[in-house]
Computed example of a mutant assay.
Amino acid sequence: MKRTLGVILAGGLATRMGGGDKGRLLIGGRSLMTHVIDRLSPQVAHMALNANGDAGRFDDLGLPVIPDSIDGFAGPLAGVLAGLDWAADKGATSIVTVAADSPFFPSNLTERLKQSADGQVHPLVLATTPKTGEEQLKSGGKGRVNRHPTFGLWPVALRDDLRAALDGGLRKVVAWTDLHDGREALFEAEPFDPFFNINTPEDLVQAEALL
C-alpha cells in the first residue's frame, strides 16, 4: 500500500486574478483543480485539499478540506504543515504537495521525488527545472535551477519542527528545507515548464493554448 498522501495547496490569495479560488478557473471546459486532482490521484494513496474559509464550497470535489493551523496568511509552509498533521492522523509517513493552479505538473512527480530522497532519514525534496539562459543572466549567474517550493516531498516526522519554525516567524520554504538538508529533483522544462502556474488572465490564455 502506498504510504505517501497527496495535498493540493489552494490557500493562496490570488490577488493577481482578482481574488477568489483560482482552482475554479476553467481550461478546456474543466476547472484547474479538476485537472490537478486527475493528475495527482494515480500518484498517491489519498488526497486532501488545503484551503481556508468555508470548506463547503469544495463539497463537489469529494476531498477532505484541511485549513491552515497558523493564524494569518503564512504562505505555503502553513499548508504543508496542515497536510503533515492530516497525514499523521492517517498513519502516513510522507506527503507530496502540488499547487492548485498548476495543471501540467509531471505524471511521475511522486516517483521522481522519492527517487531523489533515496537514503534520506527524513525524505525532503523540492522539484526544480533548469533555468533558461535569460533567467541565468537576470539572476547574475546565481543558481542553475528554479526551485518550485509548492511541489515537494515532505516527511511527517518533521512536522513539529516545521510548526516551531512557523511559530517563530519563518515563512520562506527553502529556508526551512535547507536547514534539513533538503534535496532537489530535476525535471525537464521542454517544451514548456511543467510547473507553470496560472497567476494572471494572460497565464490562463497561455494554459488554454498549452492544453
Rank of each mutant, 00 (worst) to 15 (best):
L5V: 00
V7G: 00
I8R: 06
T15Q: 11
M17W: 04
I27V: 06
G29I: 08
S31C: 02
D38V: 09
R39A: 11
S41N: 01
Q43I: 06
M47P: 04
A48H: 00
A51G: 02
D54A: 09
D54Q: 07
D59G: 10
D60P: 03
D60S: 09
G62W: 00
I66R: 04
I70K: 06
G72M: 08
G72F: 10
A74Q: 09
G75A: 06
G75L: 09
P76M: 09
A78S: 14
A78D: 04
A82V: 00
A82L: 01
L84H: 00
A87H: 11
A88D: 07
A92T: 07
A92H: 05
A92P: 02
P106T: 13
S107C: 15
N108W: 11
T110P: 06
E111K: 12
R112I: 14
R112Q: 13
K114Q: 15
A117M: 10
D118N: 12
H122N: 13
V125G: 01
A127F: 07
P130D: 09
K131P: 07
G140F: 15
G141S: 13
G141Y: 13
G143L: 13
R147M: 14
H148P: 13
F151T: 07
L153Q: 09
L153W: 02
W154P: 06
D161C: 12
L166N: 05
D167R: 10
D167S: 11
L170M: 14
V173I: 03
A175N: 15
W176S: 01
L179N: 12
H180D: 02
L186R: 12
A189V: 07
P194T: 04
F196H: 00
L204D: 02
V205N: 08
L211E: 03
